[in-house]
Simulated assay, not measured.
Amino acid sequence: MFSPWQAGIVVLIALVIFGPSRLPEIGKALGKGIREFKSSATGEEAKQTEQTMTNVTEQPKELPSKSDTTKQ
């Protein structure tokens, strides 16, 4: 694939083209895209949706005390 020298040159070119302020945004967007692609390829998204739907009907573990909600 890539040697460390080639990867370094690619990063250096990206730094010159996009600037240091945009590189973290580009990295986050690229990582999010890869995660979404992997989850859609493996079908994990359907599992997460099912889990979320079952948690909707559960009651909260703790209710806030009355003193917290009626501060005077």
Rank of each mutant, 00 (worst) to 15 (best):
Ile13Asn: 05
Ala29Met: 04
Lys28Tyr: 09
Glu58Gly: 13
Gly8Asp: 07
Val16Ile: 06
Pro20Leu: 08
Pro24Met: 04
Ile34His: 03
Val10Glu: 05
Pro24Cys: 05
Ser67Thr: 07
Lys47Met: 03
Val16His: 02
Ile26Asn: 00
Gly31Cys: 05
Ala14Thr: 00
Glu45Arg: 14
Ala46Arg: 10
Ile9Arg: 10
Gly27Tyr: 05
Lys28Asn: 11
Gln6Arg: 11
Gly33Val: 02
Thr54Asn: 04
Val56Asp: 01
Glu45Leu: 11
Val16Met: 04
Leu15Trp: 00
Trp5Asn: 12
Ile9Val: 11
Thr52Met: 10
Ala14Lys: 00
Glu36His: 14
Ser21Ile: 08
Arg35Cys: 10
Glu36Trp: 14
Leu63Met: 04
Ser65His: 13
Gln48Cys: 01
Lys71Gly: 02
Arg22Lys: 09
Thr49Val: 09
Ala7Pro: 00
Gln6Val: 09
Val16Pro: 01
Gln59Lys: 13
Thr52Gln: 11
Pro64Val: 05
Gly27His: 05
Pro4Asn: 15
Gly33Pro: 00
Leu23Asp: 01
Lys47Arg: 08
Thr52Leu: 10
Asp68His: 07
Gln51Lys: 11
Pro24Lys: 02
Gly27Pro: 03
Gly19Pro: 01
Gly8Ala: 10
Ala46Glu: 10
Pro24His: 04
Leu23Pro: 02
Leu12Glu: 08
Asp68Gln: 08
Phe37Arg: 14
Pro60Leu: 00
Ile26Leu: 01
Ala41Asp: 10
Leu63Phe: 03
Thr57Asp: 05
Val11Gln: 14
Val56Lys: 06
Gly8Lys: 09
Arg35Phe: 12
Ser3His: 07
Met53Leu: 06
Lys38Pro: 00
Val10Cys: 06
Ala7Lys: 13
Trp5Ala: 15
Ser67Phe: 09
Gly31Asp: 05
Ser21Leu: 10
Glu62Pro: 12
Lys28Trp: 10
Gln51Trp: 05
Lys71Arg: 08
Ser40His: 12
Met53Pro: 01
Thr69Arg: 12
Leu30Thr: 15
Ser21Pro: 08
Ser65Phe: 13
Glu62Cys: 13
Lys32His: 01
Glu45Tyr: 11
Arg35Val: 15
Leu63Gln: 05
Phe2Pro: 12
Ser40Cys: 06
Ala41Lys: 14
Thr54Trp: 02
